[in-house]
């Protein structure tokens, strides 16, 4: 780029990798070690017998925890805090859940189609009482497809930075500033892939519309749940979750 020096891009790369390492919530080594810890049949049954309200609240809490780490990732990432606060909020509102969905592939075991949830690995059937089988299956399919790319931790770091810093989000006030950061992150990502001979994954990355569609489906399901249980959502759901999704 005529506007960014190699040193600037290298500095941004190191900064994103460090921010990610500090905020990845669960260490990859621990997630790998726990891969054989799957919920027993009895445990799955006990989750399936929970009320829809309880299961929704649990999942809302787990999503909120994951999002708090994404907010922290954004804050530590070079350039993000230099954006105006309107744009920080626009980018997080639109992108935090998308980043959580990408991060989920680290906690996903493609071999038996399970994901790490509340201490053990769970298949899609554990989430039955949510009443969102189609959405859950779509999320599992998405994680499965991402796993086939065999992302390294560094690749996830830069890819999720790019999911977040997206200048095409509506309502940005300083679009040019976001665009410049996005361009530098794209350079950083491509430079890293070139160095590691991994440029072939560029053509296999999920289209932006796929993540957007999963997030939209999640918000639609929340809307239906809220119509059925407005008081539960109002009284017990985490405030950050409500702020982002309702």
């Amino acid at each position: 780029s005529p506007n960014s020096s190699v040193t600037e891009i290298e500095h941004l790369t190191q900064n994103v990798l460090k921010s990610y390492r500090e905020t990845c919530q669960l260490r990859l080594e621990d997630l790998q070690l726990l891969r054989l810890e799957t919920f027993s049949w009895e445990e799955v049954r006990s989750y399936q017998k929970k009320s829809m309200e309880e299961m929704w609240e649990r999942c809302a809490c787990r999503i909120t925890e994951a999002i708090q780490y994404v907010v922290e990732f954004a804050k530590r990432m070079g350039g993000f805090m230099e954006l105006c606060q309107n744009d920080q909020i626009v980018l997080l509102k639109a992108g935090a859940m998308e980043v959580v969905l990408v991060r989920m592939c680290r906690a996903f075991n493609s071999e038996n189609r399970t994901v790490f949830f509340e201490g053990k690995y769970a298949g899609p059937e554990l989430f039955k009482s949510l009443g969102c089988n189609e959405l859950i299956n779509s999320i599992f399919d998405f994680a499965h497809s991402l796993c086939s790319l065999h992302f390294s931790e560094n690749e996830i770091a830069l890819f999720t930075a790019l999911v977040l810093i997206n200048s095409s989000r509506p309502w940005l006030q300083e679009k040019d500033k976001v665009e410049r950061l996005q361009n530098n992150l794209e350079l950083a990502f491509k430079h890293m892939l070139r160095k590691t001979h991994r440029e072939s994954i560029l053509a296999k990355l999920p289209p932006k519309g796929k993540l957007r569609s999963l997030c939209y489906q999640h918000m639609e399901k929340l809307r239906s749940f809220r119509q059925m249980y407005p008081i539960i959502v109002h009284a017990v759901f985490p405030p950050l979750y409500k702020e982002l999704f309702s």
Binding site: V71, E72, K75, M81, Q85, I89, L92, E243
Partner: peptide
Amino acid sequence: QEKHRILHKLLQNGNS
């Protein structure tokens, strides 16, 4: 701003 009170708060707090 009021609509995004929690996000504002999280963004304004220092790194934790």
